[in-house]
Each structure stands twice: as C-alpha cells, then as structure tokens.
Amino acid sequence: MLAQIGKRFLTVIPSLIGVIIVTFLLTRVLPGDTASYFAGPAATPQAIAEIRTKLGLDKPLPVQFADYVAALVKGDLGQSLTTGQAVTKDIAARLPASAELTLAGLFLAMSIALPLGVMAAVRQGSWIDHLCRIIATAGVSLPVFFTGLLLVYVFYFILGWTPAPLGRLDVFYSEPARVTGFLLIDSLIAGEFETFRAAFAQLILPAVTLAIFSLAPITRMTRASMLAVLGADFVRTARASGLDSSTIIGTYAFRNAMLPVVTTLGMVFSFLLGANVLVEKVFAWPGIGSYAVEALIASDYAPIQGFVLTMAILYVLLNLMIDILYGVIDPRVRLEG
C-alpha cells in the first residue's frame, strides 16, 4: 500500500512541473501591465519603469522563470502586490476558510444525496424517485449566487434566524487559537463553545447554498450506479438466498455502487473548492477563490501562480485519496498499480 502511494507521488511530479510552467507563461501572456497598474493612472513613464525594474519584470522571461523557480524551491511564492503580504501567508490564511466551507457543503450534500439516490433506485418510478429528480434539477439549475441571496433574504432579512452574512465569524467573537485553521474544529479544541456556535451560524447558509448546487451530480450518480448494481447477478443470488433487503441494499448493492459515487464526490469537491467564488462574494467569505479573482483583475502574478499551484497540489492529493479509497472499497483495485 505504501509503495503504491509512493509510486503515485512520483507520477505526480511531471504534472506539477507542467502546471508551474503553464501558469507562469499564462500569467505573462495575459493582457494588462502590472507595473502601470500599480504605479497608478497619474504615474510618469519613468516611475512605471522603476516599478518594473523593482518587480524584476524587465528581465527576459527565462530569467524571470529561473528566479521564480529558485524562490519556489525555497517555499517562497512571492509577494502579493495587492495585499502586500507573502502569498504563502495569504493562502495559508484563506485556504482553510474555503476548505471548511466546501467540506461542510459537501457533507451536507452527501447526507441528503446518498440516501435519496439509494431510495430513488430501490423504489424506481415511485414518488421518491420523482422527488429526487425534481430536487436535483432545481438545485443545479439555480445559480449559486441566486440561491445564496435567496437564503440570505429569507433566513437573515425576513426571519432573522441567521447572523449577517459577513464572513466566517461575527466581529464580537475573537478567533480561537489556530490549530487547523478550521474555525469549527479550532473552537472545539480551545473549548470555546460560544465561538463554535457563532462560527457554525455563519457557516450554515453558505454551506447550504453549496450543498443545493452539488446535490444533483451526487444524487444522479448514486441513483444510476445503484440501479446498475441492483440489476446485477450477485444481487439476484443474494435475493435467492433469502437475505433481507437491508443486507442486500446496504452490504451488497451500496458498497458496489460506491465506486463511481466516490469519483463524483472527488470531482464535485475539487470543482467547488476553486469555483465557489460567487458564494464567497455573497457571504463575504474570506476564501481562496475570491482572493485569486481579485489578484487576476489586478494582474498580480504571484498570487495567481500560487493559487493555481496550490489547487494543483490539492487536486493531486485528492485524487490520491480517492485511489486509496478505491482500494479500500474494491479489493480488485489493490492488485493493480
């Protein structure tokens, strides 16, 4: 098993190198001049040239790239010109926020979508099957910013059940001591239950927004995969041996149906992590998506490169985790590799 994981890591190296090269080139190719952007509209050409020299943008591209890689090896992703902070620091501060939100949304979606998908497959054509289809279609056809705004309108503005959608924690609470960067976990570690409650209250609406959006792929995949497995020969054997339906559906069918579902979950997760910019904007969530978009607008190279690289590494880790999970679920996968 360990050997397999090690081998997987080795195969990842070339793709990471590719990511580094491509993001570097892409950011250079993008229209917009960083130096003139930061010098401001009133700057003299001389001032712009000065800034350009300071940023190292006057050097030829290969030299710039060599500088970038040399810094990268030391773990230095450069400085963000917009925030004035080291990119590593910015990302370290914002990534947990995005991850916490995405994970919360995904777990919420899973806890609804998996049972719903299974039920829809078992009682194919029944009301629950139709309900499943309606929920999935509605969820995916509403844009997330719309769902988000709707939820804020109903639960904050009209009902007043949730706090104002202003970031991860109400201003009246201080952040718990940082361990994981996940406020829910950190507050529990610190034993500050009031903070936990406050953070949870902030998290619930954006998480629901994300969950509604990701319901569709998970439900549909669970249903389709369950239907295929329920029609398999071994389920017929299980029925002919008189096993009760909970064993047949749970132990026999569901575990076999999990493989494509796990793949879908991984895809949904990585998609949400980078793409929930709109949700982050609506809820003023200090996440990594909005950070990257702001940097992009400002032609701020270092954060963009840092963001893409971080996402690539995360994606690789995620795929590795899914592969390992595959091996746990299906013994046939363990042999290969």
Binding site: F234, N256, I329, D330
Partner: peptide, 25 residues
Amino acid sequence: QMRDLRGREISMIFQNPRAALNPIR
C-alpha cells in the same frame, strides 16, 4: 415467509458463477 424459504428450503445456483457472487466481499 418467502424470505425464510429462500436459501433455507429452496436454493438456487446460477449461470455465470463469477457474476453471481458479490465481487467485493
């Protein structure tokens, strides 16, 4: 009643034995 009979009183063997068994158990 049928569930009690299946497997205990009446059993079946199927064609294509490999597919008739749960592949991951």
